[in-house]
Amino acid sequence: MSGDAYPVTPDGRYFVVRGRLWRRSNPALAEDRRAALVADLMRARRAVGVALRAGDTPNLAEARAAVDRAKVALGERGPVWWNDGAPDLNRHMVANTPYAAWFEALTTAD
């Protein structure tokens, strides 16, 4: 999932899907590093699907751990990639955050 298809907060930290904030990847990552991490993430997500369909609990746990490692490396989970002290609002409903007025203006502009 990319933030490009969804509204992105003015500070570029999150995109919004169904009213929920999702942290974007660290924009400071070099493009080749980002591409390699996205490839790792997609590979891990495919492994999750294979393990789920096979009922393979040990491989499912490892595949999910690989997804988490890739997301942390991308900056989508784990420590935040910004350094201004702002809290992490990942997975919060946008209506319950400082972005509420911005999002409301987007949705009522039509």
Rank of each mutant, 00 (worst) to 15 (best):
A51L: 09
V50A: 08
G12Q: 02
L21S: 00
V16E: 05
L29E: 01
A36P: 10
F15D: 14
N26M: 07
R24A: 06
R43I: 07
A65P: 01
A35F: 00
A51P: 07
T57E: 14
R43K: 11
D56V: 02
G12I: 09
L29A: 12
S25Y: 09
A39V: 06
E31C: 05
D68Q: 13
Y14E: 11
D32A: 15
F15V: 02
R43W: 09
R13L: 07
R18F: 13
A30C: 10
A51E: 06
D40H: 11
R33Y: 12
A30N: 12
R34L: 10
E62K: 13
A35G: 03
L60V: 03
E62A: 15
D56L: 02
Y14H: 12
R43Y: 09
R45G: 01
R46H: 10
P58Y: 01
A66Q: 11
R45P: 08
L21N: 04
V48L: 06
V38Y: 03
V17G: 05
A36S: 14
L52T: 05
L41N: 03
R53L: 14
A44Q: 06
G55D: 02
D56M: 01
L60R: 04
A47S: 00
N59G: 04
A47V: 11
R46G: 08
G12W: 00
F15C: 14
R53Y: 05
V38F: 11
Y14G: 07
L21T: 06
A35C: 00
L21I: 11
A51M: 00
N59K: 07
R64W: 09
E62D: 10
A39K: 13
A39G: 12
A36C: 10
G19C: 13
T57Y: 02
A65Y: 09
V50L: 13
G19R: 14
A66D: 13
A63P: 03
R33N: 12
D32K: 12
R18V: 15
V50R: 00
R13V: 12
R33K: 15
A44V: 03
A28W: 06
R45Y: 05
A61K: 13
A35D: 15
R18A: 15
V48D: 01
R64E: 06
T57H: 08
A30H: 14
L52F: 02
L60K: 08
N26Q: 12
G19T: 12
R20M: 12
D56G: 05
A65S: 08
G55N: 04
A36L: 12
V48C: 07
A61F: 01
A61P: 07
A51T: 02
R64D: 08
G55M: 00
R53P: 00
R20V: 14
V48T: 02
L37W: 01
D32F: 04
A51H: 00
A51N: 00
R53V: 01
R64H: 04
Y14S: 07
A66C: 02
A35K: 13
L60C: 06
V38C: 05
R34V: 07
